[in-house]
Design a protein around this nucleic acid. Sequence first.
DNA 1: TCATTCGGACGGTAAACCGT
DNA 2: CGGTTTACCGTCCGAATGAA
Length: 398
Amino acid sequence: MQSMPYYQQGYQTNTSYSNNGSPVPSSVLSTAAPPMMTHANGMSPHPQLGEAAPATQSQQPPKRKQVKNACTNCQKACKKCDDARPCPRCIKYGIAETCVNSVRKERKKGIKRGPYKRRQKEEDTSTTSSLLDSHQPPQPGQPAHQSSPYMRPPSMAFGYPSNLNQYGQPTAYDPYGSYAAAYHKDQMMPQSYVVNPMYQSMGYPVLMPGAAESQQQQQPQQPSSQQPPQQQQHASYAQHSPVPQPHYSLLHQQQSSRQFGDHMLHQQQQQQQQTQGASSPAHLYYQQQHHQQQHQPSTPQPSSQQHTPQQQQRHLPDIKELQDGFMKPQPMTPVPSASTSSGTSTPPESTEDEDGSKYARLSQLCTAALHHNSNTPNTTTSDQQNSHAGSPNPQQQS
DNA sequence: TCATTCGGACGGTAAACCGT
DNA sequence: CGGTTTACCGTCCGAATGAA
Ligand SMILES: [Zn+2]
Ligand SMILES: [Zn+2]
């Protein structure tokens, strides 16, 4: 009855999920397969007990221990899982066969950060700590902080290479291959990093090397990262099962961020799994989801949160309007390699050729404009700055 | 009373940064 | 190159809500 954190007692000795001192009625458990399964990650099944309670430092409340990879069911239910594969919860609900490891997204790469604030060891911890909390002087000339709404790019616009393989299998991860070409730091850098406020005072935004190319790359990028507003109601799966419908919020996140890459990824995996004959309801579930995603019209929806990244391209007003016109119909096909998934996700409307030529033209224009720009530095720059400061984003100002 | 849903705190860890 | 810092992203606690 004490206010003792759940995990504190739960993870201690007997009642913990790990070796089956689980809260689950033993009758159920008895039918279960022995909780001895090597994890996909190659981790041993019961790490928690071992390190969960250091026991030496008794005073501080033990940290919550998480499994490396929850099963899909638990994941959707936001419930505690286990390393054992038919995990206790699934066993309990009799859905053991759908108990499979969830797939982790590949972590974003290429996210630029501002300079680190040096946190010296423990000399003046007091001062530093306070300093830490309040976070360094709000120096304007610095990418102050990522968490600032201005800085955080709407997250990487398009998905990852997504040869994914979950974290457990480093091998198949091909670091972007061709993708790398398209996806590059400058384009996904937090805007304020690119156009550092400090530099503003210098009167010229510092573009990263290769800004010229990135210029054209940005276009495709920006309409992405959004997704149709939540009008997808899931099919009829799972409305009664212990596998809840996915969190909407969560779903959104995932969808929004995975957009391109991930569904490819899943397709791959699904194929794999299917070939292995492991098509469980869970997989079907995913399939359905992704089909739905793909079928979404994927409206360009130029608004929402992107007053961020494109500010830097606010210069070149002429181009801007050009791209304006060009972006509208354009759904969102940044698609790095144009060959992979574009086919699936592009709505039937635009012939890709057209798009391609548009891109080409646009890029030409961009480079041309840039050259022109560098020839006549002043006017345009101030121009852009004005537009930057004044109205961050003319085209979708609310 | 039990089950389900879900917001958000928390934890783990990969990736970026940075001094050497 | 290795240590440090940062933040992405997954896990799951616990309150709210619903169903039996
Ligand atoms: Zn589970
Ligand atoms: Zn499970």
